[in-house]
Design a binder for these strands. Structure first.
Lengths: 128, 128
DNA sequence: GATAGTGCTTCCAGTAACTGGAAGGTCAAG
DNA sequence: CTTGACCTTCCAGTTACTGGAAGCACTATC
């Protein structure tokens, strides 16, 4: 199938699919006219990557997961290790954002938000 | 003072400070030898930006906040609006990450993590 | 056969906010 | 006078795309 159909099936923009080919995630065939020709397996892999990306995995992690996915002799432990590492990163990111949110929410609440210039938000940002 | 001292005072890397000059956040003087000469006000502004960045504000938001900070005739409402918008973005991001985390945590838990190839994580990522 | 419209191709550039590194000038100390 | 720390500029790389331009391919219609 052509790139447009794969894009529709996977929900990925055609541009993104070309990019994934550029970086070697997939290697679709080419037709005589220069068009990419995607096999079902290619579409399948792209769908896999799309889901992994939606879970926040980076491209390199997707590459690793894809490799494990296609390796019949994999150990689930290897997959789990990748997922667990990623999970830990997400949890750290959440913690950082929550700290920001708490500070910000507090500041927003304490600001009058009127036409006067006095503002605890700016006071907090100002050093010393 | 020189860039090194400002870097130490603000906790910002010298590279970052030069970058902030590049994009017009600050405009330090220059000495005859070409070195940047930072005033206390410059250092103060950089500290302000450092804190705003630590709260997750983007560079453009920092620019806006810096403008409000230096505008004696500002309304706190304007500051509050910037902060509230940013707060909403953070909360959305947190929600996204929490959704990822929940899915991932579930998957990680359900994966045996042994030497066998069967893996619910890969099954979940695989389309259809 | 000409034309229009859609889909495909490549390539270049830009995004956010730095960061690393190279090549080289400046300054204070010994 | 040399060493070492500090400063300068410039170029490239990071992440994962995204937008746009120029141009070929295919299909349908007149």
């Amino acid at each position: 199938m052509n790139i447009g159909e794969v894009a529709e099936r996977t929900g990925l923009p055609a541009k993104t699919i070309r990019y994934y080919e550029d970086i070697g995630l997939i290697r679709p065939e080419r037709r005589a006219n220069g068009y990419r020709s995607f096999s079902d397996a290619d579409a399948h892999k792209l769908g896999f990557v799309a889901r992994a990306r939606a879970l926040g995995f980076g491209i390199d992690e997707c590459r690793t997961l894809l490799g494990l996915y296609e390796d019949e002799g994999r150990s689930s432990a290897d997959v789990k290790a990748v997922a667990r590492t990623h999970l830990a990163q997400i949890e750290e990111k959440i913690a950082q954002l929550q700290a920001m949110r708490d500070t910000l929410a507090h500041l927003v609440e304490s600001c009058a938000g009127d036409e006067r210039p006095d503002c605890p938000i700016l006071q907090d940002l100002a050093p010393d």
